[in-house]
């Protein structure tokens, strides 16, 4: 993209407190012969909220899944809070412990109650005693505004409630970063707001977040930066206002005209 100099595609200018939380350098990812991510350079600062947008198949999910090693990157480096991702399982688990993830399809554990869903990882990974883990879980459920659902099972709840439990579940590990992969796109319209509100609260409280989402209202309100991806590349980077007012690259304009 060197010939189109005017367009800012540099995603390494960190916001937030300025301390680099996630550092992706020259990262490539292949699925067989197909290159899903091409030379990604991106930094995310502490307490920064980065929204990633882009057409289907552009590699958004793959990007954030590489950050917690649900996918293995092929070239370049990824450093999360000072720890570099390698094949070392210890390093991977250290990073996963500090990194929450919220999925489009919630992925709550259907055989466990809401309370057990939330306390499982703290108890199993951090060896927190049951009583303490449950107290924390109840606080988190208060925070996502469904404390009365603690004893229910995921199958008994609405999508919006399930996604809020999923957020509470990721918070229970007291992560330094949370990765959101289209957390509202499997929800009915009337439930989207409750989940976005929860995410906004988190952002206000200073959580470092990368959100793949097409909720531009959300982006406008809380995002420090918006990253637009297409064909496995970072195409355009800017403030939410920039994307609302004068997106420069043609693909960005086309994409925004479709979703806005």
């Amino acid at each position: 993209m060197s010939e189109t100099k005017a367009i800012n595609s540099d995603a390494t200018q960190v916001g937030g407190t300025g301390r680099v939380m996630i550092d992706v350098v020259n990262m490539d990812k292949f699925f067989g012969d197909f290159q899903a991510l091409k030379n990604i350079n991106m930094k995310v600062g502490e307490q920064e909220v980065v929204v990633v947008i882009g057409p289907s198949g552009s590699g958004k999910s793959t990007l954030i899944r590489c950050i917690n090693r649900l996918e293995r990157h092929d070239r370049g480096s990824i450093v999360v809070d000072g720890v570099e991702l390698s094949d070392d399982i210890k390093a991977i688990q250290n990073i996963r412990r500090e990194t929450g993830m919220v999925f489009q399809s919630f992925n709550l554990f259907p055989h466990l109650s809401v309370l057990d869903n939330i306390t499982l990882a703290p108890r199993n990974v951090r060896n927190i005693p049951k009583a303490e883990a449950e107290a924390t879980a109840m606080e988190l459920l208060e925070r996502v505004k469904i404390p009365d659902q603690a004893r229910k099972f995921p199958g008994q709840m609405s999508g919006g409630q399930q996604q809020r439990v999923a957020i509470a579940r990721s918070l229970a590990m007291k992560p330094k970063v949370i990765l959101f992969d289209e957390p509202t796109s499997a929800l009915d319209p009337e439930m989207i707001k409750e989940v976005l509100d929860t995410m906004k609260d988190l952002a206000t409280e200073g959580m470092t977040m990368i959100c793949v989402t097409h909720e531009m209202g959300f982006a406008r309100e809380v995002a420090d930066r918006v990253v637009f991806m297409a064909d496995g590349e970072i195409v355009e980077v800017g403030t939410p206002e920039h994307f609302f007012t004068n997106p420069e690259e043609e693909r960005t304009q086309l994409f925004l005209s479709q979703i806005l």
Binding site: N68, L70, Q93, N94, R96, R97, T99, G100, M101, F103, S105, N107, L108, F109, L120, A121, N124, V125, A166, R169, S170, M173
Partner: peptide, 17 residues
């Protein structure tokens, strides 16, 4: 579903757990 394993892995649980 694969998402179950992924959600558990993402929270830092060991493969055995």
């Amino acid at each position: 579903p694969k998402g179950q394993t992924e959600a558990a892995q993402a929270s830092g649980m060991s493969a055995a757990s």
